[in-house]
Design a protein around this nucleic acid. Structure first.
Length: 939
DNA sequence: GTAATCACG
DNA sequence: GACGTACGTGATTACG
């Protein structure tokens, strides 16, 4: 049979929808030999096979095709930029399976249809229309409601999962209108999955009622004035344009051009050999056997999983247990020509994933120069591509010659670029942010990515660090070649470009190899340990966002800092003189040891306490106590210390961090640095720039906007207390936040029975300290220390607080009990923070318990701002604005002056809604915003 | 390399 | 009844 006409029956299979359903419905299955995720491919093949089997009867299709989506941008994105904008990124386990489902379709000898820039639904609509016009029947194998508008006139749908047919009656039962009015109902009701706005407050029920009453959408909109219900009438009038736009979005395009002719979709018998080859390559044991039986052919030899033969049969698959053994530098290849690199690229394309590691001249991504790239596609099989090595000797000036045996940098990069940017190839790295930044500087935008460091963080936060050496030792029982053995240390240390290529290969290829093995080990664990969502929504998508922020940097006014440094130096010299004359001799004011001796031995002041190291304590609290007793020397030392800190850490050091080319300071965020989910900022730390004192705030004035721009700061108000109110379920606290009250004043009022109006600031301050204490896992000792009150008074405050807010105590007890029971605590978003010390005895028990109480609160706040940051780029797309810094509950932007208000509005909306839809908080999140020429003014 | 100190949320 | 604590970070300096 070939030509399509009357009596013909076309089956259109919605491939993309099916892959997603298979992926989410099935447990994460991986290929035995190398850990390649293949669950969705397996589900897909089973479904195709079932379709083929079921369709041998009298109702058999004469024509069949599997239709896939291709490309992420369609005409709907041009109509509406938020179309499907709330879709999460594709899970990394799924991505490498996408090309395999195409292969599977072809292996079954079924037409595989996709067209760049078109959704599968439009292609299906086009074929369905043509088939109907030519007098044939159509069955659409899908349960997607967006396709239901096509039903009728010989077109039916079939839900392969539920094994049910959908005709016009079923569609009408679902939408309340006949199929030809479905788009009208969808246009009104909207769709949260595809982000179709529709008419606010109108769902399918109301929409159907309206359409049935007025006949169709145009009539309804034209006669909206007649609607009796005032709210509905107003909505339809006000949102008429949005409703029309929604209809455009939901209406399928049934005239897609450039498709394979319908006549060519005729059912063909699969080629047994090709099909068996594909199935055995995927290592589908059961399915291969079943299909072989049906087709009457011999199933290909497929040895038992885990056996030595299994590895051999899979071609160049790894040795059994290869994940934990078989590191062999001999097996690593140095790639120095086109042909060799081509061979690796072919391997990568076959696999759909590759572990990547870059070697550079520095750990500072903004200054590092690319020296080489290593790749690994399966355990034990890795290569290194040297690109910027120089000969070790060099002349006296340090000038060195390019080492022989290397590809030209440009040539290698232009070959790798398509692979590193290919949507269908997963790039696996350990701390991928680093490699992404290095490669971005040579014009390569790496995507999509996986990160073993972040996988470990999602799995093991609180248990140990997540550096590669730690992970290799713990999980692969292997100690990697130490970098020091390659570069040397101290004065003799060289940069990586001076390492001989053979040694560099052994080191670099091993890193890629380890990374790949860790990925294979961790990837299936994410699902099994229930942290896949954390990794996919809070870790992985943050990487490109942070990479962009770090590369943007923030402009710092060097002269401003320099002037402050000079002023500080003078002031310090003056204070030093005063201090030394008060002491009666010269000493190093910066030495706590010497200061302790002066204060407590020579001057015989009371209150000297030696710590465990035998030294006197001279911390700020001790000095403040002495100063309060009227001693001048400690008061001067406090002043000196403050200025010394500001000078050394900020006004001096920050100048050294100004990048010579950009004139800006580029921090680096450590995503897995803090156990709670917070970020850490290093080199320099821009999360602890002074703000609490007047002199400190002047340092923030050095953080400025470029000409014509302003800095915009947005920060969450009281986010941790709000989270506490939600998690512990404290009604009075929740109510106070809903009413927008001053939460510390309200706490004081509840505790001490004083009115909020005209409250003594001291009373409010005490309540504030208690509120913070609660977040930290309050103790009488800690509160007493903080408020400088007797311990029994602190005890009394705490008792009264728990009496007034009994839910807090329950939360604390339950959290500690949970931690003892499971060894971890959870944030609202499922982030897992391990508490290995929770069972400890002695003082460490208290530490662990307070940390366990604090972690879900601090961690949930960290999750929320991460969610906001991930959504920000899309929200400010098109605006002349960039996100520069994150300081735990604050985001800092640099914006062209005219766009400041719009930026504030959009970012505030994102931040305030950041918990949704995953979590619906009982308290509102509110965001304060400011703008100004510098960071101090933006607050 | 570690301890003490102090900057931030 | 004693232990000895507020939670989470990073940079700098002194000192062994």
């Amino acid at each position: 049979m070939s030509g399509f006409g009357k009596g013909c029956h076309l089956h259109l299979i919605d491939g993309s929808a099916f892959i997603f359903r298979a992926f989410h419905a099935l447990p994460p299955l991986t290929r035995k030999s190398d850990g390649l995720p293949i669950g969705a491919v397996s589900g897909f093949c089973n479904m195709i096979f079932k379709m083929v089997e079921d369709n041998r009867g009298p109702d058999a299709p004469t024509h069949v095709a599997v239709i896939f989506d291709k490309g992420s941008h369609t005409f709907r994105n041009d109509l509406y930029d938020k179309y499907k904008a709330n879709r999460d990124e594709m899970p990394e386990d799924l991505r490498p399976q996408i090309p395999l489902t195409r292969e599977a379709t072809r292996a079954f000898n079924i037409a595989c249809i996709e067209l760049e820039g078109f959704e599968a639904d439009d292609i299906i609509a086009t074929y369905a229309r043509e088939a109907r016009e030519r007098g044939g029947r159509v069955t659409i194998i899908s349960s997607d409601k967006d396709l239901m508008q096509l039903v009728g006139g010989g077109v039916e749908m079939f839900d392969a999962m539920k094994n049910t047919r959908l005709g016009p009656e079923e569609v009408e039962a679902k939408f309340g209108v006949p199929p030809d009015r479905v788009i009208d109902v969808q246009a009104l009701a909207g769709d949260s999955v595809d982000n179709i706005p529709g008419a606010p407050g109108i769902g399918i029920k109301t929409a159907a009622q309206l359409i049935n009453e007025y006949g169709d959408l145009d009539t309804l909109l034209a006669r909206a004035e007649e609607i009796r219900q005032p709210k509905r009438r107003q909505t339809l009038i006000e949102f008429a344009d949005q409703i029309r736009l929604s209809r455009q979005l939901v209406t399928l395009d049934d005239s897609v051009e450039g498709l394979e002719p319908l006549d060519d979709l005729d059912v063909r018998e699969p080629d047994a050999e090709a099909l068996m080859a594909f199935l055995s390559q995927m290592e589908f044991r059961t399915l291969t056997r079943r299909i072989a039986e049906k087709m009457g052919v011999e199933a290909p030899e497929m040895p038992e999983p885990g056996s030595a033969a299994a590895a051999a049969a899979a071609g160049d698959a790894p040795e059994p247990a290869a994940l934990k053994a078989g590191f062999d530098a001999q097996g690593y290849q140095t790639v120095s020509d086109r042909a060799a690199l081509d061979a690796w690229i072919t391997l990568i394309r076959e696999r759909g994933h590759v572990a990547v590691d870059t070697e550079t001249t520095s750990l500072d991504e903004m200054r590092a120069e690319l020296v080489g790239i290593s790749l690994a596609v399966e355990p034990g099989s890795a290569c290194y591509i040297p690109l910027g090595h120089v000969t070790g000797e060099g002349d006296l000036l340090g000038a060195a010659e390019r080492a022989p045996g290397q590809m030209a940098m440009d040539e290698a990069l232009s070959m790798l670029k398509p692979v590193l940017e290919d949507d269908a190839i997963l790039k696996i790295g350990q701390n991928m942010k680093y490699d992404m930044k290095i490669l971005a500087r040579v014009g390569i935008d790496v995507a999509p990515i996986a990160d073993t460091m972040l996988m470990s963080y999602a799995l093991h936060a609180g248990l140990h660090g997540h550096g590669m050496d730690t992970l290799a030792e713990r999980y692969l029982n292997h100690t990697p070649i130490p970098i020091k053995s390659i570069l040397g240390s101290g004065k003799a240390q060289v940069t990586f470009d001076r390492v001989p290529i053979a040694e560099a290969t052994a080191y670099a290829a091993e890193d890629a190899d380890i990374t790949l093995r860790l990925w294979m080990l961790f990837a299936p664990k994410l699902g099994a340990e229930h942290v896949a969502t954390v990794y996919e929504t809070l870790e992985r998508p943050l990487v490109p966002v942070l990479a962009r922020m770090e590369m943007a940097g923030v402009k710092v006014d060097r002269d401003h800092l320099s002037r402050m440094s000079n002023a500080f130096a003078q002031k310090m010299a003056q204070l030093e003189d005063e201090i030394q004359s008060l002491a009666g001799r010269k000493f190093n004011v910066g030495s706590p040891k010497q200061l302790g001796e002066i204060l407590f031995d020579e001057m015989s002041l009371a209150g000297g306490k030696k710590g465990k190291t035998g030294a006197y304590g001279t911390g700020a609290d001790v000095l403040e106590e002495l100063a309060a007793q009227g001693h001048d020397l400690p008061a001067r030392v406090l002043d000196w210390r403050q200025i010394s800190k500001l000078k050394s850490t900020y006004t001096d050091a920050l100048q050294g961090h100004i990048h010579p080319e950009t004139g800006r300071v580029h921090t680096s965020y450590v995503i897995s640095g803090a156990t709670t989910g917070r970020l850490a900022s290093t080199d320099p730390n821009l999360q602890n720039i002074p703000v609490r004192t007047e002199e400190g705030r002047r340092i923030r004035e050095a953080f400025v906007a470029e000409k014509g721009n302003v800095l915009v700061s947005l920060d969450y108000s009281q986010i941790e207390l709000r989270i506490l109110a939600h998690i512990a379920g404290i009604d009075s606290l929740k109510q106070a936040f809903q009413d927008g009250l001053d939460i510390h004043a309200m706490t004081a009022s509840e505790m001490f029975g004083v009115p909020i109006e005209g409250m003594d600031p001291m009373v409010r301050r005490q309540a504030k300290a208690i509120n913070f204490g609660v977040i930290y896992g309050i103790s009488a000792f800690g509160l007493a220390n903080n408020l400088r009150i007797p311990r029994d008074q602190a005890r009394d405050f705490i008792d009264r607080y728990f009496e007034r807010f009994p839910g807090i105590r329950e939360y604390m007890d339950e959290t500690v009990a949970f931690a003892k029971d499971t060894g971890h605590v959870l944030t609202l978003f499922g982030r897992r923070i391990h508490t290995p010390e929770i069972g400890a005895k002695g003082p460490r028990a208290g530490f662990a318990q307070r940390a366990a109480i604090n972690a879900p609160i601090q961690g949930t706040a960290a999750d929320i701002i991460r969610r906001a940051m991930i959504r920000v780029p899309r929200a400010i797309e098109g605006l002349p604005a960039r996100m520069l810094l994150q300081v735990h509950d604050e985001l800092l932007f640099e914006v062209e002056e005219g766009a400041a208000e719009e930026t504030i509005a959009r970012v505030r909306a994102v931040m305030e809604a950041a918990a949704e839809p995953a979590v619906r908080l009982d308290v509102p999140l509110t965001v304060d915003a400011g703008r100004g020429p510098n960071w101090a003014a933006a607050h």
